[in-house]
Design a protein around this nucleic acid. Structure first.
Length: 486
DNA sequence: ATGTTC
């Protein structure tokens, strides 16, 4: 058997693209990295493997901890990590969800072609940048009062329908129909709500963005047809999360859990993995607060999409409906969810923690919108602003291999600090425009440098692993036209 | 990711 050795951890190759850290010591289960050898080499360059191994010490974790091909280190738990933890005997860990609760992406279709956009790129990118707040801090499209924030934390995208920022059809094209019904606004601190009130309809910072793209490749015509995608078509990808509200929920509950459950904390190899035991009061309240933050993020992406529709109306001087600007799908990248999975022949109720990982349910699952159910759920995987993105379809193997999950992006290979040393934002921007006809706009050159295409792993290789394992099947590829960066 | 180092 081939092995891959690092200073402290040895992985065994189970088969192509599957590497295992065997169970030993305090580990409750093994850990698996799903990666080609070259991706594994990148993954082993930071603390990801140690964090993944630490994750297996969480009580109640089942089967194995998973690291996706785009994995990198995160707070306590790797970004690109999946853990299915028993919901009765296990625990719930905020660090295994992430600070940006329901960070995720949605794709909106249009019936425009690349030719329709040619010549409007500069106006389009400028108008989008004007209409959609970017960067750190407050300032969203909306500012709502305290009563309204409670309503939308509870109702999710249904609130946006009532408030005129969404149509009924948008609801049906969101994971969980844009609402986690378990959400309890009372479990969210006033501080978190006050941070969120002024941030509805904003991108935020980091790797968040809005990108106008064109479909360059269709790999599976039948599924692409079901998703309403064809070559040369213009689509819009929106990547943002729950902003300061979700961050505050994570901060609040990490502090409370560390204080109330020190015994569990002391048994874990990293305080950043702090977890509330299943059945505890804090597990229940964190779950309902996290669901509220999930709903907030869906409303946020919905309002950003609403703004995008209005921008297209301005630039192309037509109603958005006539441009076919329908939501294709919206997926969460950071969440914990109660799901039933078969473990060793037994159906078990799990808190499936996905952090930087996308649900990828295959054909037939009732959780998938009816229009897509016969083919499988759309999985949206953004790449860097110079390489484009993929639309995948959930594969059968996801249910047996990865708790119904696949990757979520390209994954960084370089720190932001290092990126700013290596690249000059203005040069990156000019090069993208001159050589690839990609129009990028951001608040500062530093933002563009930090997100330069070369700071990311090879998205094609990440997707190839997903395809080879049968957890996500490539349907279409897109290429950037205009990009506004948080 | 983040009112960017409470």
């Amino acid at each position: 058997m081939r092995t891959y050795d690092t200073d402290s951890i040895t992985l065994e190759e189970v088969r192509d693209n599957v590497w295992e850290i065997p169970q030993s010591g305090e580990m409750n289960v093994p850990a698996r990295v799903l990666a080609s050898e070259s991706l594994l080499e990148e993954i082993s360059g930071d603390r990801t493997l140690q964090q993944l191994k630490n994750t297996t010490e969480l009580p109640g974790i089942t089967k194995y901890a998973v690291c996706m091909p785009d994995g990198h280190q995160g707070y306590g738990f790797p970004v690109g990590g999946v853990a299915g933890i028993d919901a009765e005997t296990g625990c719930l860990s905020p660090g295994a969800v992430g600070y940006d609760v329901n960070c995720g992406v949605r794709m909106m279709r249009t019936n425009l072609t690349y030719d329709d956009l040619t010549g409007t790129e500069t106006e389009l990118v400028e108008t989008l940048f004007e209409a959609i707040p970017c960067g750190l801090g407050g300032g969203g499209v909306l500012e709502v009062d305290r009563k309204t924030v409670d309503e939308l934390l509870n109702a999710g995208v249904e609130w946006a329908v009532d408030a005129g920022y969404a149509v009924e059809e948008d609801l049906r094209r969101c994971e969980d129909e844009g609402r986690r019904p378990e959400a309890t606004p009372d479990a969210v601190s006033q501080e978190a709500k006050d941070r969120g009130r002024s941030q509805i309809g904003s991108l935020g910072s980091g790797n968040h963005f809005l990108e106008v793209q064109r479909v360059t490749d269709v790999f599976d015509p039948e599924i692409a047809d079901a998703y309403g995608l064809e070559p040369d078509q213009i689509v819009v990808l929106i990547h943002t999360g729950s902003r300061g509200l979700g961050h505050q929920v994570c901060t609040d509950y990490l502090a409370a859990i560390k204080q109330s459950h020190s015994e569990l904390l002391d048994s874990l190899p990293d305080t950043e993995l702090a977890a509330a035991p299943a059945g505890s009061e804090l597990a229940a309240s964190y779950y309902t607060a996290m669901c509220a933050a999930i709903n907030f993020a869906w409303v946020n992406r919905q309002v950003v999409m609403h703004q995008t529709r209005e921008v297209f109306e301005t630039v192309f001087d037509r109603p958005w409906e006539s441009m076919g600007m329908e939501l294709l799908y919206d997926v969460a990248h950071n969440s914990a969810k109660l799901e039933t999975h078969e473990i060793d022949g037994e159906n078990r109720e799990l808190y499936v923690h996905r952090k930087g990982s996308t649900r990828a349910f295959p054909a037939g699952r009732e959780e998938i919108p009816e229009t897509y159910r016969s083919v499988g759920q759309p999985v949206l995987i953004p790449g860097s602003m110079g390489t484009g993105s993929y639309v995948l379809c959930g594969g059968d193997a996801a249910m047996t291999e990865t708790f119904g999950s696949t990757a979520h992006g390209a994954g960084r290979v370089m720190s932001r600090t290092q990126a700013k040393r290596e690249f000059w934002g203005g040069d990156v921007q000019q090069e993208l425009q001159d050589q690839q006809h990609i129009y990028v706009k951001a608040d500062s050159g530093a933002t563009i440098a930090e997100e330069a295409p070369d700071v990311y792993k090879d998205i094609d290789e990440v997707i190839a692993v997903s395809e080879a394992l049968g957890i996500g099947k490539p349907v279409a590829r897109t290429f950037p036209v205009c990009n506004i960066k948080g």
